[in-house]
Amino acid sequence: MAFRAPDYSRFAGPRSRAPAWWPIWRMTFRRGWNSVWVKRFTLLGLAIGLGTTVLLYGVQQVLPEWRELLEAAGEGSGQGEVLRFDAGAYLVLLRLFLYPVLLPLAVLLGYDLIAGDLRSNALESYFCRPVTPWTYVLGRTGALLSYLMLATLAPLLWIWIFDLSTAPEGHFETIRRVPFGLSASLLLTGVTLSLLIQALTTLTRSGTWTALALAGLFLGSEFFANMFASINQEPDFRILAFFENLDAVANGFMGFPDETAGRPGFEACVAFQAGVSLLSLAYLLRRVKRSALVG
């Protein structure tokens, strides 16, 4: 950049028409990429996606009829199970992305976004510009969610496309539901986690306390869900158990609802996550407004 004299000058260039949430979205996204641990987990997700496709490609090259061999192996095991690379295999992959990638990423990226802004009073700088609390939350949450989807949904869909392009005719019917199942499950869980974590940060105003509160919430939810379910003899209380809830939502959207007795219903779990999202959003907006707009 050329040297400029320390003088003020008026700006005469054209103004952008981009919405105000767009720069917030981009900065949040970039902040994620600049964090070492967030970058590592993102690369882990992308590496799992790429590694799986490389594996599939290698197997395809060495054993072009591997799909039939897999089925035959399943039948030969004598346990009555059919081994196929179908929607069930994608459910296993989905869980692989859900717990080791999406969950830690949501915490690592989301825990200090709004808490940091509250500490540095950045909200006042935002809201004296064309930014409303809605735009702000949209920018922050949208970026967080996009980041989570980039590290989870994108590699999963990449695997699906690769699988489809190398599979024999008729395979599409067995994996037709997969893109919807993956997208719906990851989006709902991603939105719930993004909003819940950010709502917690506005309460604690500290990254450390947010992480501790989340750990307490995840572990405590199992205990309380078990307690309520056994006291009331009502398995739907198990929707409160965080990990069980995530499992039930993933199973349901992928077309394998778990109807075992004593397990929470799919619809109840979806409704619970939607409810948590709405409550978190309402609380988040209220706190953001109160922090910057009054006082």
Partner: peptide, 28 residues
């Protein structure tokens, strides 16, 4: 607006935070 309380965008350098605020206010 120059507020009375300190206010800045955390996690980035001074110049990056300022450029971010300028973009929000409509600059390319």
């Amino acid at each position: 607006y120059m507020p009375e309380r300190d206010s800045w965008i955390g996690g980035v350098s001074g110049v990056a935070g300022l450029a971010h605020l300028a973009e929000i206010s409509g600059l390319r």
